Simulated scan of single mutants.
Amino acid sequence: MDNVLENGKTLLSIRGHMSGLTKKEQKVAQYILEHAQEVIYQSVTELAERADIGETTVLRLCRKLKFNGFQDFKLSLAQDLVKPFERLPMEVAEGDDPVTISQKLISSHYQILEQTHELLQPGELNRAVDALIRADHIDFYGVGSSGFAAMQAASTFMRMGKNSCYTADTHFQAMKAALMKPGDVAVGISITGSTKDTIDSLTLARKAGATILAITSNARSPIVKLADIVLLTVARENPFQGSSMSSKLSQMTVIDVLSVAVSLGMKDEAFKYRETTAKSIANKMI
Results as ranks from 00 to 15, higher is better:
118 E>F: 08
67 F>A: 03
72 D>Q: 09
99 V>I: 12
111 Q>D: 11
64 K>G: 03
105 L>Q: 05
86 E>F: 08
88 L>Y: 12
73 F>L: 04
122 P>E: 14
101 I>K: 06
46 E>R: 13
89 P>S: 02
116 T>Q: 11
53 I>G: 10
89 P>M: 10
48 A>S: 11
105 L>W: 09
61 L>D: 03
105 L>D: 02
96 D>W: 05
72 D>G: 05
66 K>N: 15
126 N>S: 14
125 L>H: 07
112 I>G: 02
102 S>Q: 09
123 G>W: 03
94 E>W: 06
113 L>G: 00
125 L>Q: 08
106 I>G: 02
110 Y>I: 04
46 E>D: 08
125 L>M: 15
91 E>K: 13
119 L>F: 08
81 L>P: 05
100 T>K: 13
116 T>W: 03
63 R>T: 09
57 T>Q: 13
112 I>S: 02
121 Q>N: 15
66 K>M: 10
82 V>H: 03
62 C>I: 00
78 A>D: 01
90 M>I: 00
96 D>A: 06
120 L>T: 03
60 R>V: 00
122 P>G: 03
114 E>R: 12
105 L>N: 07
45 T>E: 13
64 K>P: 04
81 L>H: 02
95 G>F: 06
56 T>W: 13
124 E>M: 10
112 I>V: 15
86 E>L: 07
80 D>G: 01
102 S>H: 12
75 L>F: 08
47 L>D: 11
77 L>D: 01
109 H>V: 00
97 D>P: 07
85 F>R: 09
54 G>E: 14
63 R>C: 03
113 L>D: 01
80 D>H: 09
66 K>E: 12
90 M>Y: 12
69 G>Y: 04
100 T>C: 06
76 S>E: 05
122 P>Y: 05
102 S>I: 08
72 D>H: 15
51 A>H: 06
63 R>I: 06
51 A>C: 08
97 D>M: 04
52 D>V: 09
75 L>S: 14
87 R>W: 01
66 K>G: 03
58 V>E: 05
68 N>H: 12
61 L>G: 06
88 L>S: 05
81 L>I: 05
117 H>G: 08
83 K>V: 05
68 N>C: 07
81 L>K: 09
76 S>A: 15
68 N>E: 14
63 R>W: 05
87 R>K: 13
86 E>P: 01
78 A>L: 08
